[in-house]
């Protein structure tokens, strides 16, 4: 794989994009029927007005298949050599969800596995897909980030229940050169397991397995230490974003769009303030879809590309932060893409 003067064709280039949200809309008013909270309190704390949740019986794979199909159509069809699924909410504890998704997309037989990095899953997935291409294992990779996070939430916890939405976003990555539009730039990834306690679903794993009964102490639900997570997310994402810009040789003022994990509208605002980026360069969709965890970046990319907020030629900075703790950032110049509404 030599590319002559233009550089080797060993990079991952975005060539397809799609997303899928579940049909069911859940408003703040609906949540407040049960929670000890008001609609104003939820909007003030999170910036979220409504979110989409799966119906009972609907699973992560169902959303993943929809997003994956949309991304493959956007890429003009054709084969892929691997399906990587970033998720916090696999359909089952065993096996991984990606092989089922691949089979349902007509891709049975290709390499398929899940990546677990919570809300940073999409950026870790980009690194995984880029590695497959650089190592010569794949010419094209379908990367899907899909979450049914509502299935993890404590129905009585006002600090987590309003925040999360379900959804899926996907990209197709092909082999290409670093100087092409859509080429994934230098990737910055990190983790801090010493702060694992900040974001957890403790029960149901090997430490606290479900045997005969589900525990009733809340440990089966998603738990988050909000204030510390807020601080860590702003500090880690700003540091990772700065490092990714340096590695790409870009100045902050050259960034046209910063697409970040949609954790909370106030995290995004604080991040823009800290970096010194004008807020209109950081589009958000959290008011309408909530925090869709790993799916939030590709869902926002797709919606921003569809409504014209994101245009071919834009210099784009991506940054994410999640449980683990994990974080990551990268850059790319937005390519010409045909994106279809979900």
């Amino acid at each position: 794989m030599t590319g002559g003067a233009a550089g080797p064709a060993d990079r991952a280039v975005v060539c397809g994009l799609g997303y899928r949200l579940p049909e069911r809309v859940v408003t703040n008013a609906q949540l407040c029927e049960r929670l000890d909270a008001t609609e104003d309190w939820i909007v003030g704390r999170t910036g979220i007005s409504r979110r989409r949740w799966v119906e009972p019986g609907e699973a992560t794979s169902d959303l993943a298949v929809g997003a994956g199909r949309a991304a493959l159509e956007s890429a003009g069809g054709g084969p892929v050599d691997a399906v990587v699924l970033a998720t916090t909410t696999p359909d089952y504890r065993c096996p991984a969800t990606a092989p089922d998704v691949a089979a349902r997309l007509g891709l049975n037989g290709v390499a398929a596995f899940d990546v677990s990095a919570v809300c940073t899953g999409f950026v870790y997935g980009l690194a995984t897909a880029a590695g497959f291409i650089a190592a010569g294992l794949a010419e094209r990779v379908l990367l899907i980030a899909a979450e049914a996070f509502s299935t993890l939430l404590d129905p009585d916890d006002r600090t987590t229940q309003p925040i999360f939405g379900d959804g899926a976003g996907a990209v197709v990555l092909r082999r290409g050169r670093a100087d092409e539009p859509g080429a994934v730039g230098p990737l910055v990834l990190g983790s801090d397991g010493a702060r694992a306690e900040l974001i957890t679903v403790k029960a149901g794993g090997s430490r606290f397995p479900f045997r005969t009964a589900v525990p009733d102490d809340g440990s089966q639900y998603f738990q988050m230490r909000g204030r510390e997570v807020f601080r860590q997310s702003v500090e880690r994402m700003s540091a990772a974003a700065t490092e990714a810009l340096d590695a790409a040789g870009w100045e902050l003022r050259e960034v046209d769009r910063m697409i970040t994990h949609q954790a909370n509208a106030r995290v995004s605002a604080a991040l823009a303030t800290r970096l010194g980026l004008r807020r209109d360069a950081a589009p958000q969709n959290i008011a309408e879809v909530g925090n869709t965890a790993a799916a939030s970046i590709p869902v926002l990319l797709a919606q921003a590309a569809l409504d014209g907020t994101l245009k071919a030629g834009h210099r784009v900075l991506l940054a994410a932060f999640g449980g683990g703790l994990t974080w990551g950032a990268t850059t790319l110049t937005w390519p010409e893409l045909e994106v279809h509404d979900a």
């Binding site: 704390r45 909000g226 204030r227 807020f230 601080r231 702003v234 500090e235 909370n264 106030r266 604080a270 303030t273 800290r274």
Partner: peptide
């Protein structure tokens, strides 16, 4: 959350 923003 604002105490975090203020601190930063």
């Amino acid at each position: 959350l604002a105490v975090v923003e203020l601190s930063l």
